[in-house]
């Protein structure tokens, strides 16, 4: 898909643009690109590689979209207002997001789990490099760091630049804080059961722990113990045998609420994250129920 078409959804929400507006926007984007290219080369080069021009244009689009979203507008603003002023607002917003990102990164490091996992540690270190290498003036859409660690719920791949990093960090902090509520030795035992090489493989550390906590909450057991014994597993299976899809999801959602209450999690995004982890268990439970064994979902650490 051509880069230029990526502007289309922004303009689309207010209906199609008139031909005159579309032409004006094209010209203004071209002017912005010309000006940014001049700044990028310090006016020492009249030409740049196609890839560089595409990256500069994508960065302009990203910054403009930040501005449009902040103001609740669309690409139509580009036809009505000074493009340079809109871009300057986008740059200002990007700077603010960058500062917020640094604070989020500090929090992610402070709340980081002491669990051994190569991709988790490497990703945290790598994001530190992002803040050194991120060039928001010219390549604001880029993510100049390696991020191998898989979150339980990945960030939308359409998010770019610092917007992606900030959302990733927000989710990582939720997972960090959750893991931090449990005794590390118990967490390790569950992870060993979930994936014997959890230290070296690209797995999510939070999901098996949250799953077990939800399982125990369903039975109104102590979630801090984390391990779900085979007997407890059978009781969970019996519980779900009696429920159709809607009440089953409601039960899972209620269990997530109990987990949050027990752990003192009052933050709404964290509560929603845990609730989604719980309700997303339903298809797995539904698939495993006919076989009468939920032992591969709710893990026994013994």
């Amino acid at each position: 898909m051509p880069e230029n078409k990526k502007m289309a959804p922004v303009g689309g929400k207010d209906g199609p643009l008139s031909e005159a507006d579309a032409q004006l926007i094209r010209e203004r984007l071209l002017k912005l690109l010309q000006r940014r290219t001049g700044l990028y080369t310090l006016d020492e080069s009249s030409s740049v590689r196609v890839e560089t021009a595409q990256a500069l244009l994508k960065s302009i689009q990203f910054l403009l979209e930040l501005c449009f979203r902040e103001r609740g507008g669309s690409i139509r603003l580009l036809a009505k207002e000074d493009p340079e002023a809109l871009l300057a607002q986008g740059l200002q917003l990007c700077e603010e997001k960058l500062e917020a990102g640094k604070a989020l990164y500090a929090e992610a490091c402070l709340t980081a789990s002491s669990l051994e996992n190569r991709s988790y540690k490497d990703t945290l270190t790598g994001i530190g490099g992002f803040f050194k290498r991120y060039d928001y003036r010219f390549f604001a859409h880029e993510i100049p760091c390696d991020m191998d660690y898989q979150l339980c719920f990945p960030v939308d791949e359409r998010a770019l630049g610092v917007a992606y990093i900030n959302e990733y960090l927000r989710r990582l902090i939720i997972e960090n804080r959750f893991l931090g509520c449990f005794e590390i030795s118990r967490v390790e035992r569950v992870l060993e059961r979930a994936c014997p090489d959890y230290r070296g493989l690209l797995i999510n550390l939070y999901e098996p722990i949250c799953t077990n906590a939800v399982g125990l909450a369903l039975l109104e057991e102590d979630i801090l113990l984390l391990s779900v014994s085979p007997d407890q597993c059978a009781r969970v299976a019996a519980l779900f045998h009696q429920l159709s899809a809607t009440p089953a999801k409601k039960a899972l959602s209620g269990a997530a609420g109990s987990v949050c209450a027990r752990l003192g999690i009052t933050n709404a995004p964290a509560q929603a994250y845990i609730e989604k982890t719980a309700t997303d268990l339903y298809p797995r439970i539904e698939a495993a129920l006919p076989h009468g064994n939920l032992g591969n979902i709710f893990l026994s650490a013994n």
Partner: peptide, 9 residues
């Protein structure tokens, strides 16, 4: 959206 934002030839 039908608008084509390709640069003018």
């Amino acid at each position: 959206m039908e608008n084509d934002f390709s640069l003018e030839p």
